[in-house]
Design a protein around this nucleic acid. Sequence first.
DNA 1: GACCATCGGTTCAATTATTGAACCATTGTA
DNA 2: TACAATGGTTCAATAATTGAACCGATGGTC
Lengths: 270, 270
Amino acid sequence: MSTIARALALLDHFSPDHPRLGLTEMMRLSGRDKATVHRHLTALVQAGYLEQAPDTRAYRLGPALTRLADMRRHTVPEIEMVGALIDDLSRVVGELVHVNRLHGFDLIHLCHAEHHNHPVRVSFDATERPPVLATASGRAFLAFSAPEVVAAALADPGTWDRKDAAPDGVAVRETLATIAAHGFAYNRDTLRLGVSSVAIPVFDADGTPVATCSIAYPTGRGGADFRDRLARHLMAFAPKMTVAMGGVVPARVQKIWAAQGNSTKMADQA
Amino acid sequence: MSTIARALALLDHFSPDHPRLGLTEMMRLSGRDKATVHRHLTALVQAGYLEQAPDTRAYRLGPALTRLADMRRHTVPEIEMVGALIDDLSRVVGELVHVNRLHGFDLIHLCHAEHHNHPVRVSFDATERPPVLATASGRAFLAFSAPEVVAAALADPGTWDRKDAAPDGVAVRETLATIAAHGFAYNRDTLRLGVSSVAIPVFDADGTPVATCSIAYPTGRGGADFRDRLARHLMAFAPKMTVAMGGVVPARVQKIWAAQGNSTKMADQA
DNA sequence: GACCATCGGTTCAATTATTGAACCATTGTA
DNA sequence: TACAATGGTTCAATAATTGAACCGATGGTC
């Protein structure tokens, strides 16, 4: 382990429970010598990765981090950032993973990852632009959006499948409420026969949805249990992705996801 | 300079113009040996401060930065406190409000608030690091700093715009004196064409500047009158913020701000 | 008020990790 | 094919890191 790694590891000891750490505490946490820790800390302060309170002499995370994080947000295209992440997810679940963004009321494909463990798998077409309310992604997005957005979506005739009749506003709102309570949306054969999917929103810094992450799989793969397993994967994954994109998961959603991560049974969605 | 500092300095070479850097380029920019740079880069990748594109092998800023910056946001209370304060100010004046800190002689962005009343507004880039003396914030900071700090700033070639000739020490000192007399600094199209700003210092418990608060607006919005209106807003606001951060406004500054708050006409700044 | 513990910080010789010139492998180009 | 440029590796020489001991300040205790 290099000196650099050892020094940077000091930063990892900060947490919401320990926002400020003193020299001795750092020494204890890292298990290294006091002089060494002190040298490292001062180097980090010098570089702006830490700052030291003049009075208590305690250390806390420094301004350089915000600067660099901003820089990362500005310079790293989210597509690539997200690409690496969903690649991992896809590898774990062995299914097709999508990331979509809502542009107007069109779901636009941002990127996808596919690590096929199974002979039977879902094909897809990145150019497709299905009506928002007909997809798990679209519903997941809207379920966590502001009422005005939902209202606008319902008012727009392009959001529901043109083959169907206009969706009943009340029924749709109920579905969205259920989704918001579950923490995720799903879809079984509704858009394309034989294809099911599970979807979850990704948030920006204001806590409003900016994108969705979804897993698509052949319906034959399994029933509610299989679906819920995937949903739990998504609920563990979405916070990571949200953070990577510089966003924040709203507290209420965080709570739901944490709770659902443990439960085994869930109510049906309309 | 410690190994840690040298390694971390590598991260500073990333900019909006150079979001991805290769080994050789890093070597050139840092002026160090290739092997050393490579060691450092891999250490940083290991720690998540950088990530490497698998195909091009180019490096870019990594996810650990977002994580730590978030942690800082959550654990450093002043940021949120200041955030709430400037949010109000921004709402009142209807312009972009910034808070910066001086780290070394770099102005670093702490937070900002933007409540756009106008169709035309100032965009900004939190990653920019302009020369201190070229900004209203920097000059406001230095105008209220100790003579030694000013002398050090003038001695540092990085504090003035490299496109210009070295600033005349006498002229700069005069400008700073004027600013100190006015109670605030301003800037009209000097850093970015079409962008003006007004800035004011925030003090710590010792009465030395710790940060600056500034308002940026499109130059077209108005002339000296408009600018002075914003300045008065700042002079009313800065004491609040200083107090909120546990600082004290020096008596002489307090006097100036109180006086200027009533006057309607002010002399020009160089 | 002397005593002790704890804290942040410093010193300096011993050690250990860092360094960098030279080298290798790969890719793209003339 | 030769050449240049890229990313990466090796290993002896070297320079930086290390840590036991020490200092000064603060704060609680008898």
